[in-house]
Design a protein around this nucleic acid. Structure first.
Length: 420
DNA sequence: CGAAGACCTTT
DNA sequence: AAGGTCTTC
């Protein structure tokens, strides 16, 4: 591990780190003490409750070699496969992964990550709200003592080179983003087999499927039916806030773990979800959770990673609120079924518009037959990672990413204007 | 097998 | 209408 002293010049500091990094070509830890604010308990508290920013450097950041062609955080975290990551700073995304809160960002060929260590806070252990602790002088005093101890512990743990926890963190990150899958090679394969893909693939590079927790994936997508993304995000947030364990608070935002299946299986959950605005999906969520607990076991969803695609899909279809589209989302995004192609009205439109699929334009609704034909069409064209390729085109059609398509055109126009 | 309608709420 | 699912005909 490298231990570098912070200089007054951030840029110079980072450049130095970069040079060393490229020599070693492995991950490292930056221990960057923010001296401007001092290490009073209050200062510590305020600092620890803020989102991390790479440019401020007040937190411990680690990183990984990872070019944008292999991963683009903006596309990957905002294409609708996950609903819980938020851009908490320019190019910085904060969310929950493996039961802990992370902030991620990237520079040229580097993926940076910070893991928050605030689970040991006394009021978090007891599951109480921070506000209450602040109201009580005594608790506040205790908290300050804890804070001072914590600073030392934190420094110590960070000074230990490649501690077990650090190695685990890196594994969690690599696993979640499936970084062992060489995305650039896949894009080339898809582009070679499909000129239309090549066009959009050039602009929308670095979009990869996450390997999400099956529980979070299943219950999030049960919420997605006949619904739009902004509302789904709000619903999932409320679901976690009400039934999930509090992990930490940053800049006034509370981060909770995703609820356990057991917590969602309680019969009282249904009415509570109704109150939280889940509509008819409240019943689906609670009944699916109950069915998993009573017919199988809490680990059952994870075991579906080890069975063939169609078998896992068929098992999921038995759950209430889970149809073909939701089942395929869960298969693709959390159960290692890269060939699963979720077909919704949008994908149906893409198939007709860009791939001459007119056999299904006769029917008014998305029938099972049409659904299967579109999935097979894309699987035939793109191969065993068809689900990954499909989501690139799906993402390229999202309204929020339309501006990305314009950029090259504008550049071309500018270049043309210059030449003239 | 396919079409039609209900289903909760919010953007 | 919204990134569907379920039930009925």
């Amino acid at each position: 591990m490298l231990f570098l002293q912070h200089s007054s010049n951030h840029k110079e500091f980072h450049n130095n780190v970069y040079q060393l990094y490229h020599i070693l070509h492995r991950s490292y830890i930056i221990l960057n003490t923010d001296t401007s604010r001092g290490l009073t308990s209050l200062g510590w508290n305020r600092r620890m409750s803020q989102h991390a920013l790479l440019s401020l450097g007040a937190k411990a950041w680690r990183c990984l070699y990872c070019p944008k062609s292999e991963l683009r955080l903006d596309l990957t975290l905002e294409c609708g496969q996950t609903f819980r990551w938020r851009e908490t700073g320019k190019g910085h995304w904060t969310g929950v992964m493996g039961g802990r809160v992370w902030t991620l960002t990237q520079t040229d060929d580097t993926l940076w990550y910070h893991v928050y260590r605030c689970r040991e806070d006394p009021d978090h252990v007891n599951g109480r709200k921070r506000k209450k602790a602040e109201d009580s002088q005594e608790l506040w005093k205790k908290f300050k003592e804890m804070a001072e101890v914590k600073v030392e512990e934190d420094d110590k743990s960070l000074c230990v080179s490649t501690s077990e926890q650090d190695a685990k963190d890196e594994e969690v990150l690599k696993d979640y983003f499936q970084l062992s899958v060489k995305l650039e090679d896949l894009y080339k394969e898809w582009g070679d087999a499909d000129p239309h893909f090549r066009r959009t693939g050039n602009i929308f590079s670095g979009l990869r499927m996450l390997r999400q927790d099956p529980v979070e994936c299943l219950f999030s997508f049960i919420c997605s039916s006949n619904n739009h993304i902004t509302r789904i995000q709000g619903m999932v947030e409320r679901l976690c806030g009400r039934f999930g364990t509090l992990l930490c608070e940053l800049d006034g935002t509370c981060y909770h773990d995703f609820p356990s299946i057991e917590a969602l299986a309680e019969s009282s959950v249904q009415a509570q979800l109704r109150d939280l605005g889940f509509g008819y999906r409240a019943r689906f969520l609670q009944e699916s959770a109950h069915q998993i607990i009573s017919c199988h076991n809490p680990e059952w969803l994870h075991t579906l990673r080890n069975v063939p695609y169609l078998e896992a899909r068929a098992s999921l279809l038995k759950l209430p609120g889970v149809g073909p589209k939701v089942a395929d989302c869960v298969c693709l995004m959390s159960l290692d079924k890269s060939e699963a192609v979720p077909v919704d009205t949008h994908v149906w439109q893409i198939a007709r518009r860009d791939y001459n699929y007119d056999a299904g334009s006769k029917t008014k609704t998305l029938t099972n037959k049409v659904y299967k034909e579109i999935g097979d069409l894309f699987r035939q064209r793109w191969g065993s990672y068809a689900g990954w390729a499909h989501s690139v085109l799906f993402c390229a059609d999202l309204k929020k990413f339309q501006k990305l398509k314009e950029t090259p055109t504008i550049k071309e126009e500018k270049n043309q204007a210059k030449m003239e």
